[in-house]
């Protein structure tokens, strides 16, 4: 198991954001994390990569207990993350942005080597021809790719993707999904939050469902899609299964 989350509980004041969340993630898989808005998905990411310390429970990454470590320590151990709200370093070029990932990620490269690693990562996400442009000039889809390249350049063992498909139009989603598959095929394990249902159902090896901070279902995509608890969580929409499986 590359990642084990055990009994993780997180409260903000009186708000119970996560309640005893437990799951395992085997190496080399894509695990989808879904749930209605406000279910605690991003909070779970924040606990896993050290932005927040949980009130209770453990996060074990590659056999090491990383609970409560600050996020930069977690990053150096080989966990990278692409954020939902993309905020590139607008003063810097696209390449320099990605170099931050290469310099401070798991391998901690020097500047010179980081530039080469950055170009590799940019090639992988198909952004290499923009390398010398200021990152402020990119459109939404390109910024999402930049965010992905930044995470990849860290050469992580585990990649956390927070809604990288959100805001993309259908013609942009397909190539992005191919990019994600190619990352998995390199041996990088992926945990991803996604609202685009067809996409996550088709790409994930397994799926876990969060609702009101609790894990209500886990399993293969088709099992989860037919789980009555999950259907109920999504506003009790009876047609959802049909829509999900239509692909």
């Amino acid at each position: 198991m590359i990642l084990q989350v055990q009994d993780v509980t997180k409260r903000f004041g009186g708000l119970q954001a996560l309640t005893e969340v437990t799951f395992d993630l085997p190496e080399g898989q894509i695990l989808g994390l879904i749930g209605p808005n406000g279910a605690g998905k991003t909070t779970l990411f924040n606990v896993i990569n050290g932005v927040y310390a949980p009130n209770r429970g453990k996060v074990i990454f590659r056999g090491e207990d990383i609970t409560g470590l600050p996020s930069y320590e977690v990053a150096r151990r080989g966990m990278a993350r692409a954020h939902q709200v993309v905020r590139p370093l607008t003063e810097l070029t696209v390449r320099e942005n990605v170099m931050v990932g290469a310099c401070f990620g798991r391998e901690g490269h020097s500047l010179g080597l980081a530039a080469r690693k950055a170009d590799e990562a940019l090639a992988q996400v198909g952004l290499v021809e923009r390398a010398d442009q200021p990152s402020g000039n990119l459109n939404v889809a390109q910024k999402k790719r930049l965010e992905l390249a930044r995470a990849l350049a860290a050469r992580p063992y585990l990649l956390l993707l927070d809604e990288v498909l959100a805001g993309l139009n259908p013609s942009e989603i397909t190539p992005m999904m191919e990019t994600i598959r190619s990352i998995r095929d390199e041996g990088i394990t992926i945990l991803m939050i996604e609202h685009v249902m067809q996409a996550i159902m088709s790409i994930s090896d397994r799926i876990i469902v969060l609702d009101y901070g609790q894990l209500i279902a886990a399993g293969k995509p088709e099992e989860v899609a037919n789980n009555p608890l999950v259907i109920e969580a999504y506003l009790g929409d009876p047609d959802m299964t049909a829509r999900l499986m239509a692909e």
Partner: peptide, 26 residues
């Protein structure tokens, strides 16, 4: 400005939380 250290600083300037997630010991 032109060092690896400085690149980390500039990442902090733009978004400190994101910089830490990328591994910068802010």
């Amino acid at each position: 400005k032109h060092s690896r250290f400085g690149l980390g600083l500039q990442a902090i300037r733009e978004d400190e939380d994101a910089a830490m997630v990328m591994g910068v010991h802010a």
